[in-house]
Design a protein around this nucleic acid. Sequence first.
DNA 1: AACGATATCTAAACTTGTTTAGAATTTACT
DNA 2: AGTAAATTCTAAACAAGTTTAGATATCGTT
Lengths: 341, 341
Amino acid sequence: MGIKKTLLEDIAKELNVSKTLVSMVINGKGDAYGISKKTQEKVLSKAGEMEYTPNVFARALRTGKSHLIGLLVADISNPFYSHIAKYVEKELAAKGYNLMICSTGENIEREEKLISLFAEQHMIDGLIIATTSTSGGFFKKERLRNFPIVFIDRYLPDIETNYVVANNYQGSFELTDLLIHKGCKNILALNITPSHISSLTERVKGYKDALKKYAIPFKEENLMEISFDNIQNDVRSKLLKRLKSNNKIDAIYTLNNHIATACLNLFNEIGFDANKEGIYFASFDDISLFDFVKPNIISVSQPVEQIGIEAANLTLELIDNKGVETAIKKVVLPTSIISRN
Amino acid sequence: MGIKKTLLEDIAKELNVSKTLVSMVINGKGDAYGISKKTQEKVLSKAGEMEYTPNVFARALRTGKSHLIGLLVADISNPFYSHIAKYVEKELAAKGYNLMICSTGENIEREEKLISLFAEQHMIDGLIIATTSTSGGFFKKERLRNFPIVFIDRYLPDIETNYVVANNYQGSFELTDLLIHKGCKNILALNITPSHISSLTERVKGYKDALKKYAIPFKEENLMEISFDNIQNDVRSKLLKRLKSNNKIDAIYTLNNHIATACLNLFNEIGFDANKEGIYFASFDDISLFDFVKPNIISVSQPVEQIGIEAANLTLELIDNKGVETAIKKVVLPTSIISRN
DNA sequence: AACGATATCTAAACTTGTTTAGAATTTACT
DNA sequence: AGTAAATTCTAAACAAGTTTAGATATCGTT
């Protein structure tokens, strides 16, 4: 048994005032409620002396505000998400909010369970989410109607929501365009299945449209689907087969960093040197270590810091304007190409 | 205004029973309190129908348990920590606990503030922390006396606490030993300043002891201190100077992944190829992408998954045995050398 | 002195659950 | 029939704050 926590009441008793007064002063509402300066000082110094810290649960129960924001991502160990998390947290901390991060593992049921726990029960004041859902059905629930939610990285096309995403279409278009400029005519794109996620479909669209721009016909066999649950094995079997075939490619374009890493692993295993083979290697999602990796990687870098900051602020804005009917905000941020070599 | 949340009382009214009864049934204590099976079924089905979810704050306020565990690390975007976080979360989720992750940015004041907020106010039931503190003073506070805390990655030598760490000494010893076996006699170690953190001091000790084993005298100039706040610039100026000097080295050993990355950046900038220069490059902390990086990196890999799992379980154990005087657990897990090339 | 206005403070209600102490009913047994 | 025991349930207290409505004291004014 540690020492008993100091309560509002304890301070009140010490000073012979009401706990109402103490509460008011501690919340900085002393002036608003006409508490004399002298009393305010007494309260504050006594609270400091007694090391008072409010009970967050009692406070949250009464006020309905927890000053907690939830962040739901597929996998916190993915550097893309962990960097976003870092900046979201930094931005929120400056405004007196804390962050609860949870991974869904791209599992819809777990995602929905967490949203229920967090949002429907109002454990958190707002939610930032890189959803793994296919459709917006779940988010249309009456109970979530007025809850502050900001989508990041991915949005759901069938519902109107606030979101902050990178311009996946444009980034993918520019990357493909660059590859074509370098002389590529047979660019193999590796995508994740199931690929209903908006960021991926837009990347595919950007790829296809860039081909179209140069009148290069899109070939089905140049869009390879890699199963999310089995990335490494799928890449090994499918890509290897293709590399050995007569259907020569002049570029490999992985649609996210997971697949890129799997490809690099494969190259390593079989001693394949893309650069020597005259094959460009490109990827959406930049990772800092790509700078030192062999082969050279041409990549699309997303503005993670900006995504984090904007998502945090948009969420806080929604919380402040809760109840007020505000226009939905769709933030699309530009990406940049990192053309190594 | 969304729809009003269903309360215990709402269910009670619908069924003409007391909210006490509803609470008991919902918490699975129906049998223990002798509530008839028929009534239990009625309550559960009505609760499902009305989509009841308990208010976590009211519950936590009354029970003093939040089912929340805090994880405090220097930087969640560091892959070492984000991977630990992933496994901690996974393990906790299976036991009905949720994780609150916060970054301290190696800032002691922020760390102490977060601990106050989380632990002293009992917002969380337990804390897992990679502390940035120098000494255990803060943790000796009366108010934290009986609070479940598990240290990871780093421990404080001056207090007796539960911890789960990698065997930093052994890993560093083995790595240095390997370099010596490869013929190195002048191994430059790059450390972080301030380096009071236990994991770093032990790595230094392992390095020195391995030298001693082979009667290689330790030279002060071969332990370079890099400032945490300015890693890249410090590496650039200090390491560059050394590389240009006549004091030739035959290996560079970075004591964590941050410094390793900074070195790689420098090499890239100046077009330095360690392998060609006959210099081995080694690092504590393995990152998966190291596999594809040039130069070859010999690294010490920490058992992140195991650290995460053990830390989670140890924390839950402490929570279960709260109040009971249990022996302190110090878990030291073996590392493994990844010798590329 | 009496009045309202102002300044300062407080008692009690309220947030939503959990827990305690005990009530009401039925069954069991002498 | 009457008491003890078991079964099933409930009223009220409680967790620790915030908020509301109103009390008390002081002051200025006529």
